[in-house]
Each structure stands twice: as structure tokens, then as C-alpha cells.
Design a protein around this nucleic acid. Structure first.
Length: 248
RNA sequence: AGGUCUGACUCUUU
């Protein structure tokens, strides 16, 4: 059963909802974890109605089931329902709190996000990474940096969020400082640094940074394309566009 | 014991 459950989850990640469902039905026995995997499959592929139906059908629901549905509502733009679900949950874990926090943060509900962050019983890396944009949007970079410094463990996701917070507020030097201090970098952190250059008017630096990137994604290309376009460098934009691959 | 849920980059969008 664990293997089939993993396969259901894999199909879901690849957008192969039909295969996930077929396998789910073929499973000789289904426990709550496999039901949750199918629930998550619907959720990840934007099928809120099917997720709701499955949620009601499930013989047993655990905190993970509730968490999946909470996120599913938010992804469909139903923020209020998402919160109501959180309030109705029989049991909450750290993921439930983080999920609600990120729902608020990602939808611009800055005050609600900060409130949740302060009342949640425990916090981890995910909580801090989720709340950083709320601090950044309100210009409270010192608070954000203090929380960042207090965190005993930091991963590349948190470092990148901190870099981005500085970049979004025009603090190019501080963003670059974070970038240079990162113990580990990846394509996403490179893109965040690229965006920090580009959106703060450092076109030459952005161009050079882009040119020496070990890898580029569609985000890197879009960033250069938009930067050239908005700065009136139409020929450079056209050239960038022509160099873009057809796929990401 | 293990398999399912939450966090970072551009644009678009609900």
C-alpha cells in the first residue's frame, strides 16, 4: 500500500489525475494515507469539487486530510472558507498553522498573517519563510532580518526569501550581501538575485549576471525580457525573445 | 518503521 500511495502522489505531481484515480481504485486496500494522497491529487490539479466529494466519502479523516482541503480552498480563491475550515478542524498541527499563515501571506492579508504568526503555538523554517513577504511588503525589514538571524536553522528557501525581501525594497547591497553569504544556492536563488538587479535599475549588472548563470529557467528569461522591454531596449528584448527556447 | 499535507524567484490569472 505504501508503494501504491507513493505512485498516486507521483501521478498527481505529473498532472496525471486519471492514472492516479485508476490506481487508487485498483488498490486492494486503502488506508487514510492513500485516501489523503488521492485527495491531494485532486487538490494539486485544481479539482476542488472532487476534493470536497472525496473528503466527505473518506471513511476516516486525519489532520492531513483537513490540511489538504484547507489549501485546496485557498487555491480556488476561497480564503474565507479556508479559514472557516481551519476553525472547524478537530485537530491542528504545525502544518495546519503554516498552511493558514501562507494562505494569508500569499493573498496579501498582511495583518492576518502577522497575527497568525504571533499566536501560533510553534514556528519553524516554513513559518518564517511564509511570513517574510508580509514584513517586506510593510517595509519592516529590520524585524524580518531579526527573525531571520534568530532562526537556529536556515535553508536555501529561507535565505532566498530574505534576499527577495531586500530586493523588493530596493536594498540591493543588502540583497547582494545575503546572496554572497548563502551557504548553498540554486536556480531560484540566482533568479531572485537577477530580479533584485533588474528591478532596481542595475541593467548592466543584471545582463552580466544573466550571461554568467550556470543555468537559466523560464523565470530568468522572462525577467530579462521584461526588463529590456520596460527600459526601452526593444532590440535587446527582441534578441532575448529569439534566443528563448520553446520550452522550460 | 515507511508512503499522503504547509514555505523561496519572473509573467499571467482566479
Amino acid at each position: 500500500a505504501p508503494l501504491s500511495t507513493s505512485l498516486v502522489a507521483m501521478y498527481a505531481r505529473c498532472g496525471r489525475l486519471d492514472d492516479a484515480l485508476a490506481l487508487f481504485h485498483k488498490m486492494p486496500s486503502r488506508d487514510t494515507v492513500s485516501w489523503n494522497a488521492m485527495l491531494s491529487a485532486y487538490s494539486q490539479n485544481g479539482h476542488l469539487d472532487d476534493a470536497q466529494a472525496l473528503f466527505r466519502e473518506m471513511p476516516k479523516r486525519d489532520v492531513v486530510s483537513w490540511n489538504i482541503l484547507l489549501v485546496s480552498y485557498a487555491q480556488a480563491g476561497h480564503i474565507e472558507e479556508s479559514k472557516q475550515l481551519f476553525d472547524a478542524m478537530p485537530k491542528r498541527n504545525l502544518v495546519s498553522w503554516n498552511a493558514l499563515l501562507s494562505v494569508y501571506a500569499q493573498n496579501g492579508h498582511v495583518e492576518e498573517a502577522k497575527h497568525i504568526f504571533h499566536i501560533m503555538p510553534q514556528k519553524d523554517l516554513v513559518s518564517l519563510t511564509s511570513i517574510l513577504p508580509a514584513y517586506a511588503q510593510t517595509g519592516h525589514l529590520e524585524d524580518a532580518k531579526a527573525l531571520f538571524d534568530q532562526m537556529p536553522e536556515r535553508d536555501v528557501v529561507l535565505w532566498t526569501a530574505m534576499l527577495d525581501a531586500y530586493g523588493q525594497n530596493g536594498k540591493l547591497e543588502l540583497a547582494k550581501g545575503i546572496f554572497d553569504d548563502m551557504p548553498c544556492q540554486n536556480l531560484i536563488s540566482w533568479n531572485a538575485m537577477l530580479v533584485a538587479y533588474a528591478q532596481n535599475g542595475y541593467l548592466e549588472e543584471a545582463k552580466h549576471f544573466f550571461d554568467v548563470l550556470p543555468q537559466r529557467s523560464i523565470v530568468s528569461w522572462n525577467t530579462m525580457l521584461l526588463t529590456y522591454t520596460l527600459s526601452g531596449h526593444i532590440l535587446a528584448a527582441r534578441k532575448t525573445f529569439d534566443q528563448m527556447g520553446e520550452r522550460d
